[in-house]
Structures are given as structure tokens and as C-alpha cells.
Amino acid sequence: MNISIFEQWWLAIEPAVQANTLNFWQFIYKEIYLNVIKDDRWLQYLKGLGVTLEVSFYAILVGLVLGTVLAILRLPQIQHMNARGKGFLPAVGAVVVRALSKFAGLYINIMRGTPLLLQVLIINFGIFGSVRIDKVIVGVIACGLNSAAYVAEIVRGGIMSVEKGQTEAGRSLGLGGIRTMIYIILPQAAKSALPAMCNEFISLIKETSILSYIALTELTKAGDYIRSRTFSAFTPYIVSGLLYLLVVLTLTWLIGKLERRLRNSDH
């Protein structure tokens, strides 16, 4: 029978494992073999990593879109919006907009003021209590809704950092409020918000580990799974941790590159 070099090494140290007489290097190899190599366990980590990336990616998208909308609703000019003109429709319009703005504020406070773990459990066992739904979707919704609250504050800060003159220039050319926001304000807000946003993305990626509570096999859970089989003290955590680090470093590098490119274009 053909056995791999890893199996051969394992067989070589197995007597020492049984006799509990491993030296340091043999111990290291035992840990690696049991927690990474045996039964193709490295695949488990990679699958977990895939789920973590999938959930993080979509949650970031949800957070960005919803967060931007929330941020705009929280702008002073929306919060204190007055009816433009007299009559029923403008009055109702202004009331609705102000109510939405209040709701956005409440939403942000609740989402930032309660632990993500509770939100995940409530969404899984409460809101989707009797719905057969893919856990990845539950994870995307829970993490996305939570992230949106933080993104909202970051984007709002970014928007407020753009000079008022930029809005006036856009409006004076005849661009409407929404177009001015999309083409002129948000791109500049995004630039100044980028470092804080990078932080938020990094937090989000790591926080998806909480989804292991609802039995989603993401990266942390993959480590937990292997550990529950091997009873190894911490080796699976190190492997998972290294993979998180790899993802975060890659993201940091990419965003740093983007930041430099944006910086070169102006100022």
C-alpha cells in the first residue's frame, strides 16, 4: 500500500505517543498530524475559511448599503427637514422623512448597544424561529444588520467631513440632492472614511466567529470541530487564527493600496 510521507512519520512516532514519551519535536508533529493532516482535516479549515469569507463578503455589502442609507437619514438637514411649501403632501413627506430619521437613530443605538451574540441568537431563534433557512443567510443578515449601524456612523462622519461648498457647487450646477450625494459627496466621504471602514471590515470578519453558536461551520467552528475530536489544547485555534490573520492582512494591504491610489489623485 502507498502511504504518504506524513503517515510514515506518524507511524514512526506512534509508539512514543502510546507510551507518552514524546520529545518536543515529536509532540509538535503529533499536534500537526492529528489537527491538520489526519483525515484531510486541513480541508475542514479551508471550508470554514470559505464560509467565513462568504458570510463576511455579503455582510459587508449589506452593511455598506444599509449603513449608507442610515447615515444619510441621520444627516442634520434630513433630521430637521421642513416641509417645502404648504399643502398636505409636502407636510406628510417631511413628517415621514423625520420619522425615518428618528428610526435610523434608534436602530443605530440598539444595534450598537447590544451584543452581536444576542442579535444572532434572536435573529436565528426568534425572527427566523420557524423558517427553514440557510445558516449562511442568517449569518449575513445578522452580521450585516449589525455592521450597518457602525458603517452608518463612519459614513456620516465621512459625509460631514466634506466641505459644505462641495454640496453648494453641485447644487448650483443644477444637480439634485441625490445626484450631488452620489457623484460628489459620497466619493469624497468614502475616501476620508476608508481607514475607519477598514477597521470595521476587520472587526466584522472576526466577529463572524460568533455564528458558530448557531451551528454555522465557519472558520472558528472548524477549529472547534477538530478540537472536539482530538482534544488538543490549542493547535486548532492556532491554525484558525493564522487563517484569520492571513485574511485580515490581505484586506489591510488591499485597502492600503486603494488609499494610496486615492491619495495620489488629489490633495
Binding site: 417645502r84 411649501g85 404648504k86 409636502p90 466641505e163 461648498g165 462641495q166 453648494e168 457647487a169 453641485g170 447644487r171 448650483s172 450646477l173 443644477g174 444637480l175 439634485g176 460628489i184 466619493p187 469624497q188 475616501k191 486615492l262 489623485s265 488629489d266 490633495h267
Partner: peptide, 26 residues
């Protein structure tokens, strides 16, 4: 000043130049 008027359409016809230029830096 009538709220029913589409002010954007009228602003198109009125160019404005500001003290601080307000070019779009991006």
C-alpha cells in the same frame, strides 16, 4: 421661491462661482 418650481432646472441656467472655487477634488 414657489416650492412647486423645480429649482434644479433653474439653477442649470444660473452658473455660480464661489470664493473657494469648490472644484470637485476627486
Amino acid at each position: 421661491t414657489d416650492p412647486k418650481v423645480n429649482i434644479n432646472k433653474h439653477r442649470e441656467k444660473m452658473g455660480m462661482v464661489f470664493q473657494h472655487f469648490n472644484l470637485f477634488p476627486h
